[in-house]
Amino acid sequence: MSTEHIVTSYEDELASLDNKIAQMGGLTEHLIADAFDALSKRDAELAVKVISDDDKIDQFELDIEEQAIAMIARRQPMALDLRQIMVAIKITSDLERIGDLGKNMAKRVLSIHSERHPAQLMHGMRSMQELALGQLKDVLDSYAERNTNKALAVWRGDEEIDAIYNSLFRELLTYMMEDPRNIGLCTHLLFCAKNLERIGDHTTNIAENVHYLVLGNPIQEERPKGDKTSQMLVNHDDQD
């Protein structure tokens, strides 16, 4: 990135691509924060706003993709430029998915809106959301700064989100077993927790792409996999 292109308009296009990703990333962060606020406060109005905000993120994805394709066609990018454009397409697709997951949480707010609201249940959810949002923010910073160390830290940090998810999963199952009236609410919360866990995975994808963008090779370590809920069973004997 030290020297500039001889063709200024090419340089401008690459800068505008970065700029749009920064904007899209900012919007996505906001959307996730709002979606969670709506969930914890049962704020239907905010939830509706989140649902409509997701359209803006989708629009960004289309816009960035279109620009990236046009640049490939017109500039025949090479090396770092090629990686930047390919990574832009991939990152926007991850951000778009993150937006969808936030929107999905907001939709669930509308369904559980009138249900009981056990405060302690939200405790684990909150720390999970804070972690996921922090990771998203860090990974977007790592992209803007082209900072592979930051990206690697995010990549390794996903395990922590998975760990909270595992314990939340157990917790929610326990509530459901305690009182069947909790099942509706807890199922929705379980999906919200799953959404946050998925947001962590998309964030990890972005971290991998930042690494590839800067160094030109994929992260060599094996990806940490902390989501063990697919192997969890309810043991009814415990209840007796």
Binding site: S2, T3, H5, I6, A79
Partner: peptide, 12 residues
Amino acid sequence: EKTQDYITGRFG
């Protein structure tokens, strides 16, 4: 870096 600069059109 020189290779990168040349093939991406950063110096002539």
